[in-house]
Design a protein around this nucleic acid. Sequence first.
DNA 1: TATTGTTATACTCTATAACTATA
DNA 2: TATAGTTATAGAGTATAACAATA
Lengths: 147, 147
Amino acid sequence: MDARLRRFLGFRLKRVFNLIRADLLEQLVPLGLHITTFSTLVVIVDHPGLRQSALADTLDIKTSNMVAIIDDLEQRGWITRQRVPEDRRAFALFVTESGQRVCEMAVALASEHESKLLTCLSEQELDSLMNMLEKIETMSEYNDAAE
Amino acid sequence: MDARLRRFLGFRLKRVFNLIRADLLEQLVPLGLHITTFSTLVVIVDHPGLRQSALADTLDIKTSNMVAIIDDLEQRGWITRQRVPEDRRAFALFVTESGQRVCEMAVALASEHESKLLTCLSEQELDSLMNMLEKIETMSEYNDAAE
DNA sequence: TATTGTTATACTCTATAACTATA
DNA sequence: TATAGTTATAGAGTATAACAATA
């Protein structure tokens, strides 16, 4: 990469993200998942009963874009939408048995795949990398809220 | 974000990358640039005479997708395509005076913008972050080549 | 035969506005 | 009037296949 461009964190992130994304997709597509459906499925498994709007917030995806992702997972029989009695506008989301199975398989594949990509970093370095990224994200959210 | 998803580097990268991308775009669009045209312009400024194929390699963009980006920059009068005498299939790319000016403005804006986002990290932490990302990228390239 | 640039095309992800049904 | 979900749509970015001109 160009020396000047390389000084921008954004461009390094982009390249590493694209690497990880392409590799991850190779693992997920045979299971019938994409990046968005995978991450959505994981969150539903970990938070049964979550509503679409809360899910969209968690994943930083617009609710309008969430619909097709939920549709996809529902049509594959991996999750169900259930009307919330106290608020009939909302849907609560639940994973099915097969959805649970696919999710665990996908998580295992994704973990394995990421580990391989990250063997060049020590446990400590990886921790530090994760923490720095979280710091940036948190600070940015704080700044956005202050605007 | 979900606790389990948060353990994946890919998803943290995605979120931070999206943050940086959205902020950077805000700076670039008023200048008539996007992420791809910006990075392309910087590389052409830093490597005058570079050919499209080499540029695509440098930026990790397919040559087929490179065409529209080059077209855009050329139509705005910021770069020129010049046939290479020794290989009449190829185009060498050069920046114009106005292209140079826009580039420097954009780089200044982008640097300033990234610095603001990264005030939460020390100089040393940022170095370490950059190095780790480069490590991952380099190792992955090595692995790809070995396949 | 292989490579450079090009066209055409398709799919993922993201973003916005307007709608419906409920609250 | 506000909110949850939806539809429609548009624009970036990425990916592959096929082609013309040139090597």
